[in-house]
């Protein structure tokens, strides 16, 4: 576990060394919310939830896209001799999840300031966001590790990841509707079970496949 934290710390240090990286993400969040808000003018509760996740989706793609491109290839050979691929993968997932949670919280703040507060069940929304961040982080990290091996890295991540994200996203949207109070559904536990089982399925598959995909 300590070794994984080491890798996470390295990741964070590299990210923070380039100051524009985090600031760029924040700017992305701000400007896309601004565009959406200037188109809609006002966001009723239902549209608030949809807008939130559309912006979040593209921000998360942006954030995780470059996760394997940041370091040189020779450095990965070096890592390969030092760490088990799973350690590297878990470190990347943890770091990306933290990044997504950062995006989630800042986007929530931005939309809260711009379009008002529509969340009825704040705890539920926070839990939904955390689950989404972990699930999407695992999925996007795996896809990014596949896409880095191809020639068109950026577009390939989007092509491969977007359709695979939909099962996760549908459940997140339902849980969001519950936390916004826009659905008559009073029992969200079905969705929670489905979402956690999809996430654990994805995580299991990713842990099994990553060592195999990573060696080249």
């Amino acid at each position: 576990m300590g070794r994984i934290w080491n890798l996470v710390a390295i990741e964070a240090r590299i990210e923070l060394r380039e100051r524009f990286a985090l600031a760029g993400l924040l700017l992305y969040v701000l400007s896309s919310s601004f565009i959406v808000f200037s188109i809609w003018r006002q966001l009723p509760a239902k549209e608030w939830g949809l807008t939130f996740w559309v912006i979040f989706l593209f921000c998360s793609l942006m954030a995780v896209l470059k996760t394997f491109g940041r370091e040189s290839e020779t450095r990965y050979y070096y890592y390969y001799t030092l760490y088990h691929p799973l350690e590297l993968f878990l470190a990347k997932v943890l770091y990306n999840a933290a990044l997504l949670i950062f995006i989630f919280l800042s986007l929530w703040f931005v939309l809260f300031v711009m379009a008002g507060d529509h969340i009825v069940r704040g705890g539920w929304f926070l839990a939904t966001g955390f689950m989404a961040c972990i699930g999407l982080s695992v999925l996007l990290t795996l896809i990014a590790s596949i896409a880095i091996k191809t020639q068109q890295n950026a577009s390939m991540t989007a092509i491969l990841a977007l359709p695979l994200m939909i099962p996760v996203l549908i459940n997140i949207l339902r849980l969001t509707a519950y936390s916004l109070g826009t659905t008559p559904d009073e029992n969200p536990w079905n969705e929670v079970t489905l979402l956690t089982s999809i996430i654990s399925l994805v995580t299991g598959m990713a842990l099994w496949l990553f060592p195999y995909l990573w060696r080249s």
Partner: peptide, 25 residues
């Protein structure tokens, strides 16, 4: 994905991984 990788072994390995992942989802 297959059409964007030139190396045969790389292509086979990545598409095998993605294929299994996709079928489970």
């Amino acid at each position: 994905l297959r059409s964007s990788i030139d190396d045969e072994m790389q292509k086979a390995r990545l598409s095998a991984g993605y294929n299994m992942f996709a079928f489970i989802l």
